[in-house]
Nucleic acid binder design. Structure first.
Length: 951
RNA sequence: GCCCGGGUGGCGGAAUGGCAGACGCGGAGGUCUCAAAAACCUUUGUCGCAAGACGUGAGGGUUCAAAUCCCUCCCCGGGCACCA
């Protein structure tokens, strides 16, 4: 036997696997365009496919423990699936555009490209050193032209299909990153997700992806993601924030109540409270405000409120007392249900970017309106009263409307009875109540409103005022407005020599900036904004299926063969950001037709894609004809592009195909927990980082991998423990020695063990043979037989448990099952050599190695091809996963607990196949002394577990 | 405020309603050794000399049986939040 030296073993097999191309994906997708299930594939004698993917890294420096954890989990799944007979796609790449590269380049006086690609090479080496089974021929690097050109292509297709808008709106601006941010990238109380600076609101013209068109589908399809964590689905649902309610149209009027034909629509979730409206509110930024107050005595006060709101940061608006500032505009609207005249106020608690920026205020039913009414002395008429509220009886006798003289401490927004509500009085009120429905119907019949739905989800702001990103393929022409870059002119190359250290930007590079308009041929300039890096990561999983395609982002056959990803693994921090964007992209790409005819047919996409860039040219013309191209760059007709269509749910179809048809990219999602030290997330700034390289140098990659899998379930946070790592190191070394001994490769050691432990064996197994009579020699033989039987059972028990646990991603308990087998083997190895069974020894050794192969790949390979002498069978990683037998895992006799009134009082040993009656009899005999003559009223036998006696 | 998770020995963590604490770490004692390391063996929830009693955040409930299901709370973590 030679000692376990991970450095030698690991480098040796890494080189071997690489040169053998062990992990290259079997590429048989070219002529395959049908949906298939594992069963179909099996029938055709082909292997079923399995696509396992981990969120690709940002090349921000060295590989850290979070990466190690993420990629180890993926690697176990990948290797296990291969051994289960799947063709596995397991790729890796880099999400390599983005701001950190620019900041680092400035700091280190280099270029973002150099910094990025240097880091990629470093990380690539680290990932290889960890022995991950990636198909390195399928690497995707998002800053490579071969990749980002297709990002531009997709951008144009989105544009063509009405999913791109350029418009002016209030946006989030990070002063430190000097760029705008998407809503999803503002975290906590208005902080930039990257640098943590306080984000400012600014009115800017920017590029958006119309993710809101998919709000309903993104929400609804969460229901079919059975294998996503509830938490992630909940977070997405919260973020999308659907509210059911009604739009109500209010008409402006003068002081005498004369209508003026001008209308303002509000959104409400409580149409049942319409009779309780006592004033009307506009957001300070509302476009109507200026007109309403122009030249009036109210203008100054209103403008003060507006200025104060505009200057407040998101943090200020979210924190503090939430004091509500407001001012009367001097104007009124008419309440459509009762003709009442309501004063229009402006207040900062009304948000311009939710609903319509206008609100009907019902102070008795809404706490915010209530506080505002109190502060400004406005009426608070009751409208929905709780059934047990004494006010209800009082109001029913009241002939005229009650106002402020009802002194409530707070608004009431629960279910109740409608009062003072004309023909609706007495109906059930509350959210989604009959009263709500009735009022909505009433409004609809008269054209005064309609049932509608509102979402909190905002359109995705994708433009960034930064250099290191995918250039937005658009051209600004003074005559034609904003024109798409013709498809034939793609890619728009990002110049690599922009000197960010000198503060230069794309606008400073004439060869990039100055172009001729593709439409009129006149002088024009390129858009200098680049796309949010999240656009790059929104479809990379599709590119992996067909990395080398130079005709399209990916082929239909490849996508349909592999997608959706069977198992996606990554951090919870992307629960909303990346995971929502990727779902949106996949749905949009489906509707655009990139998954083939069958898919868009379900979703009624009518766009003509036969002529590629011609369509785009025509589209560009239509843009040029627009009188105000800077605002309306959106396709005029999106009605044919029906994204609200139901996801077709054919229950007979295989789930994978159904998910792809629904435009869902990830069938199963695992969000792994964080790696912590001292209860804190490892981070350079906290100085509590354990570098993977150092651990590998001391213990090897396999020990690190097994440790990380063993210390916690994958979805929970993991506390780093030097002692725990050493425990795993001991475990691997023990298995190493055991395999050598078991395989007969180490006769010296075997003899040594024999000589050394003969005495101990006797002690150790005395318990097992307590009931056996006879001479010492006989006892030892009997013990040996029992040890063999126990080891055999443990082998099957461990095998079954490990298999089940890997399937369920309980890697920690899978490893403990292997430890139990090793513990049993240790007992067995105490038997003198002559009392061991060669076949059993070999079987146990091979099982230990095969079960550990996905987790400790190099370790397993060395033992497989070394002491186990299985070179002729090829790599351990191409072996079939061993089969185990439930019957073999079971002992002939089992011990059962006997409970009396719920307490365990005795134990019985019965045959494993004993029928209930036999067990019952045995239990009653064993319990006799505890029963003390009492008669059992009930005896419950739980087979193989216990007997419960009730007296 | 609303919505999700979670709370089990000294620690990480196990337990389709069926013997709580698998497995590992740590601790204690031992074997081997001149000694140490490594390895191996025994032991290790709490209280108790013991018999035994108690024990999964707290309190109730359902059940022959509850860490697990139900109700009322407490604490920790996370998401959303002046969203009409």
């Amino acid at each position: 036997m030679y000692a376990y030296d991970p450095q030698v073993v690991e480098t040796k097999w890494q080189e071997n696997w690489q040169s053998a191309g062990l992990y290259d994906t079997v590429d048989d997708t070219a002529d395959d365009s049908t949906d298939e299930t594992a069963d179909d594939a099996a029938k055709q004698g082909e292997k079923p496919r399995y696509y396992v993917l981990e969120m690709f890294p940002y090349p921000s420096g060295d590989v850290h423990m979070g990466h190690v954890r993420n990629y180890t989990i993926g690697d176990v799944v990948s290797r296990y699936r291969r051994m289960r007979g799947f063709d596995v796609l397991h790729p890796i790449g880099w999400d390599s555009f983005g701001l950190p590269a620019e900041n680092a380049a400035i700091r280190q006086n280099t270029s973002p490209a150099v910094w990025t690609y240097t880091n990629i090479e470093r990380q690539r080496a680290s990932l290889k050193r960890l022995g991950f089974s990636y198909d390195w021929s399928r690497t995707v690097i998002t800053s490579d032209v071969d990749y980002y050109r297709w990002g531009q292509w997709i951008f144009l297709r989105f544009w063509q299909n009405g999913l791109v808008e350029r418009r002016s709106s209030p946006v989030n601006w990070c002063p430190s990153c000097a760029t705008v941010l998407a809503n999803e990238q503002v975290v906590g109380n208005g902080a930039c997700w990257r640098c943590g600076s306080v984000v400012k609101r600014r009115e800017l013209e920017q590029w958006f992806f119309k993710i809101t068109d998919y709000a309903e589908e993104l929400l609804k399809d969460l229901a079919i993601l059975d294998d996503w964590p509830q938490r992630v689905k909940q977070m997405q649902a919260n973020w999308i924030g659907k509210s059911q309610g009604a739009e109500v149209i209010f008409e402006l009027c003068d002081e005498q109540g004369e209508p003026s034909k001008e209308k303002i629509t509000v959104f409400t979730t409580r149409p049942d409270t319409l009779f309780g409206a006592s004033f009307f509110l506009l957001a300070p930024e509302h476009p109507l405000v200026k007109g309403l107050i122009a030249g009036t005595e109210y203008a100054a006060a209103v403008e003060r409120v507006a200025t104060k709101a505009a200057n407040a940061t998101a943090v200020e608006r979210a924190q503090g007392e939430r004091e509500k500032n407001g001012a009367f505009t001097g104007r009124y609207v008419i309440n459509p249900v009762n003709g009442e005249k309501l004063p229009i106020w402006v207040s900062d608690y009304v948000l311009m970017d939710y609903g319509t920026g206008a609100v009907m205020a019902v102070p008795s039913g809404d706490q915010r309106d209530f506080e505002f009414a109190r502060a400004y002395g406005l009426p608070i008429p009751p409208v929905v009263v709780a059934a047990d509220d004494p006010l209800l009886a009082a109001l029913s006798d009241e002939p005229t409307r009650v106002q402020n003289d009802v002194d409530w401490p707070a608004a009431y927004d629960g279910p109740g009875i409608m009062v003072q509500s004309g023909e609706f009085t007495g109906m059930d009120g509350g959210k989604d109540s009959a009263g709500s429905q009735a009022v909505t119907n009433w409004l609809e019949q008269r054209g005064l409103g309609r049932a509608t739905v509102n979402y909190r989800l905002r359109d995705w702001l994708i433009s960034r005022q930064r250099y290191w990103g995918n250039p937005i393929p658009a051209i600004h022409c003074e005559t034609c407005g904003i024109v798409p870059v013709p498809e034939a002119d793609l890619p728009v190359l990002l110049p690599l020599d922009v000197d960010v250290t000198a503060g230069k930007s794309l606008a400073d590079y004439p060869e990039f900036y100055n172009v001729t308009c593709p439409q009129c041929g006149g002088a024009a300039h390129r858009e200098t904004d680049t796309m949010d890096t999240f656009t790059c990561s929104s479809w990379y999983f599709l590119r992996y299926t067909d990395v080398h395609n130079d005709q399209a982002p990916f082929g239909v056959a490849a996508a349909r063969a592999w997608m959706p990803v069977d198992q996606y693994i990554g951090g919870i921090e992307h629960a909303i950001l990346h995971l929502l964007y990727a779902r949106f992209f996949t749905k949009a790409l489906r509707d655009i037709g990139l998954f083939g005819e069958k898919y868009p047919a379900d979703h009624a996409v009518q766009a003509d894609f036969a002529n590629g860039s011609n369509v785009l040219a025509g589209f560009a013309n239509s843009l040029g004809a627009d009188s105000n191209p800077k605002v309306a760059v959106t396709s005029p007709d999106t009605s044919s592009f029906d994204r609200k269509a139901d996801s077709p749910a054919d229950p007979s179809a295989n789930p994978k195909a159904a998910l792809l048809r629904a435009g869902e990219p990830f069938a199963r999602l695992l969000t792994q927990g964080m790696v912590k030290l001292g209860g804190e997330v490892m981070s350079k700034s906290k100085g509590n980082v354990v570098a993977p390289e150092e651990v590998i140098a001391a213990y090897g990659a396999d020990a690190l991998r097994v440790f990380i899998l063993f210390m916690a379930p994958p979805d929970k946070d993991l506390e780093w423990s030097k002692e725990g790592l050493e425990g795993i190191w001991r475990f691997l070394n023990r298995v190493w020695r055991q395999v050598f001994t078991l395989s007969g490769e180490d006769m010296d050691a075997a003899k040594q063990t024999e000589g050394q432990t003969e005495g101990q064996t006797k002690d150790q197994t005395e318990k097992l043979v307590a009931q056996e009579a006879g001479t010492q020699a006989e006892a030892q033989t009997a013990t040996a037989t029992q040890v063999h039987a126990e080891l055999t059972r443990q082998l099957h028990r461990s095998g079954l448990k490990a298999t089940e646990d890997i399937e369920r991603f309980n890697f920690n308990t899978a490893i403990s099952a292997v430890m139990e087998l090793s513990n049993s083997a240790a007992v067995y190895l105490k038997l003198p050599c002559a009392q061991r069974n060669v076949n059993l020894s070999k079987q146990v050794a091979e099982t230990l190695v095969l079960l550990l192969a996905p987790m400790a790949p190099h370790f397993a390979e060395e033992l497989w091809q070394g002491p186990l002498d299985n070179v002729h069978k090829g790599s351990v990683h191409t072996q079939n996963w061993p089969r185990f037998d439930v019957a073999c895992a079971q002992a002939n006799t089992i011990e059962m607990a006997v409970q009396i009134n719920g307490k365990v009082k005795a134990r019985i040993t019965v045959a494993a196949d004993a029928v209930d009656d036999e067990v019952r009899t045995a239990a009653l005999i064993a319990a006799d002394s505890f029963l003390a003559g009492r008669q059992p009223t009930k005896v419950i036998v739980v087979p193989h577990k216990l007997v419960s006696i009730v007296v």
